[in-house]
Simulated scan of single mutants.
Amino acid sequence: MNLLQLILSDYSKHKKYGGHFLGIVFFTQGFWAVFQYRLAHFCYCRIKWQPFRLLFLMLFLLWQKIIEITTGISIPASAKIGHSFYIGHFGGIIINANVIIGNDCNISQGVTIGVGGRGEKRGTPILGDKVYVGANAVVSGNVNIGYEVLIGACSLVNQSIPDCSVVLGVPAVIISQKGSKGYI
């Protein structure tokens, strides 16, 4: 997908949850953060000529910090996030620079997706498509989160999770095989 298609898919996902154009563009902090990320990631991946790359990356880093201070949402330009990404609520969201997030994912407030673990488990997560991450959940370490996984609120995920699972707890355990259908 090109940049415009990615931004439109994110906008459509926000609109699906009951927003309208003015509300989404001017009052939805999650959309602001994702929009800023899309532009910064485009620059990070596509601009190769060093003088321009450095200039644009510095400008986008400054813009990212303004968005981070304003919204409480930190998404570095080097993270890899698929289309139709939705951040439902304001604040406290930290995404590591090396994280990979699939298509059509939802993230609630207070979520941390980042580096963790020791030895072989040290690293950053890879989230599959249609993953829902509940409020104040933490996903850390070199783990793979499967397709259509629902991570419950206040959970700590530090091990890989198979497709269509519902996980909950600290550390998270599989409580169901119903997946995220209905949450995405």
Rank of each mutant, 00 (worst) to 15 (best):
I100S: 11
F56L: 10
F60G: 01
G82H: 05
G72A: 08
H83N: 13
V133L: 08
G30D: 03
F42D: 07
G116F: 00
N103Y: 11
D129V: 02
T124K: 05
G23C: 06
Y44K: 02
Q64V: 01
K15W: 04
Q50D: 13
G19I: 05
Q109A: 15
L22K: 12
G88L: 08
Q109N: 13
R53P: 08
F90P: 01
G82K: 02
P125S: 07
I94R: 03
G128W: 03
G91Q: 09
R118Q: 11
G114N: 09
F26M: 13
A97Y: 08
I73D: 00
G82C: 04
R46P: 04
P76I: 07
S78V: 01
L127S: 00
K65T: 07
S78Q: 14
L59D: 06
W49R: 10
T124V: 15
G88W: 04
F90G: 03
I93F: 02
G19M: 05
Q36R: 04
P76D: 07
F31L: 08
V115E: 13
I94E: 02
I95T: 00
R46G: 05
I81Q: 04
F26G: 05
D10E: 12
Q29N: 12
K80S: 11
P125I: 02
R46N: 15
G88Q: 10
V34Y: 01
F85I: 08
Q109M: 15
V111C: 09
S140M: 12
G18R: 14
G92F: 04
F85N: 03
G141F: 00
V25Y: 08
V34N: 06
L57E: 10
K48P: 01
P125R: 06
G102P: 01
Q36S: 10
G117A: 06
I126C: 10
V133A: 03
G92C: 05
T70G: 07
